[in-house]
Design a protein around this nucleic acid. Structure first.
Lengths: 114, 114
DNA sequence: ATCTCATATTCCTTGGCGGTTATATAACCA
DNA sequence: TGGTTATATAACCGCCAAGGAATATGAGAT
């Protein structure tokens, strides 16, 4: 008998602001847990827990060096998010372009009113 | 006295698979609630609830036509997600490129072994 | 007015999440 | 060995989300 329980996805992982913050920090360079604890504003167990989540979805990996655990980014799973949202890219930009045009039109009309 | 309560973000909105499914459907064309109910596998109140969430973050808008409510996509808020994940784009692709190179190297070595 | 169709809202249950404190583990040091 | 540093795990709490069933609202149709 199999129970499929609650597999967390990459989308879930990046939905949490703390975890995004961690990823943004690891994008710069690997950090130890304590370094992250000092940079974030949650307790050490809190950080360890979020790191565990990130590990489970494969977004980070650990390199142990004596007592220190260096966490580093594994960006690959973000491809899923990127590939999803990129489908909307043209729509997003299209609207911006239309907005640009609207603003231009308004400016021109304003000038014509002088 | 101010209570800042639980503002849902665009990231939260797209973290839910049902809501992503709705967005993907609305990307094709506007849909009524009942159309979505038939395409998704949750109850009508369930759909209405997710649409409310999407409305709150500005990802959809409604156009009412008699009893029918046409929901259509408002992609703008996705820019936030896109702009975040795009920072990782080079990292993702870099890795893929390295993988490509590795595969090429392996193939070449294999040929050399003939 | 009443009936029906389309949608929203309310109330409820279940379950998990993000955070905490306390404790365990593990590696190094003296 | 005992002590210290670094991290993980356990137990717990408060909160809210996702979904369903029942009900309300609202807009035609007759």
């Amino acid at each position: 008998m199999w129970y499929i329980i609650n597999m967390i996805t990459t989308f879930d992982a990046v939905a949490d602001p703390t975890r995004r913050q961690i990823l943004d920090l690891l994008r710069v360079r690997p950090h130890t847990v304590n370094e992250l604890v000092e940079l974030l504003e949650i307790s050490q167990p809190g950080v360890s827990k979020q790191l565990k989540v990130l590990r489970e979805v494969g977004l980070v990996q650990v390199r142990q060096e004596a007592q220190k655990h260096w966490y580093e980014l594994r960006p690959e799973p973000l491809a899923e998010v990127f590939n999803w949202v990129v489908n909307y890219r043209s729509l997003i930009e299209e609207r911006y372009e239309r907005l640009d045009e609207l603003l231009k039109t308004m400016q021109e009309e304003e000038q014509n009113n002088d």
